[in-house]
């Protein structure tokens, strides 16, 4: 499940009003998610959650579901 918070961060960075972000959604399916915006999204997530990713962790994330799992693993339950 993708949290509303993550959806909002992504939608805000990409100026997306209505786009159904699912766990299996990949970057190239989302309008405007290019390599430049990718960096902006990662930075926005790090700021919003107060976390820091390792380079390899981000590179390994294949879709939004992976990104959500990565965030979940960084924040205490």
């Amino acid at each position: 499940m993708i949290s509303d918070k993550l959806k909002q961060v992504i939608q805000k960075e990409l100026n997306l009003k209505e786009f159904d972000l699912k766990a299996e959604t990949i970057a190239s399916q989302v309008p405007g998610w290019d390599s430049l915006n990718h960096i902006n999204i990662i930075l926005a997530i790090e700021k919003e959650y107060g976390i820091k990713f390792k380079g390899l962790e981000i590179l390994k994330a294949k879709n939004i579901g992976d990104l959500q799992k990565l965030i979940d693993s960084k924040i205490p339950a």
Binding site: S35, L36, I39, N40, I42, L43, G55, L56, I58, L59
Partner: peptide, 13 residues
């Protein structure tokens, strides 16, 4: 490119 871009991400563009 991608690993470098991620490492330099704090500098944005």
């Amino acid at each position: 490119f991608k690993p470098l871009q991620i490492s330099f991400r704090s500098m944005r563009k």
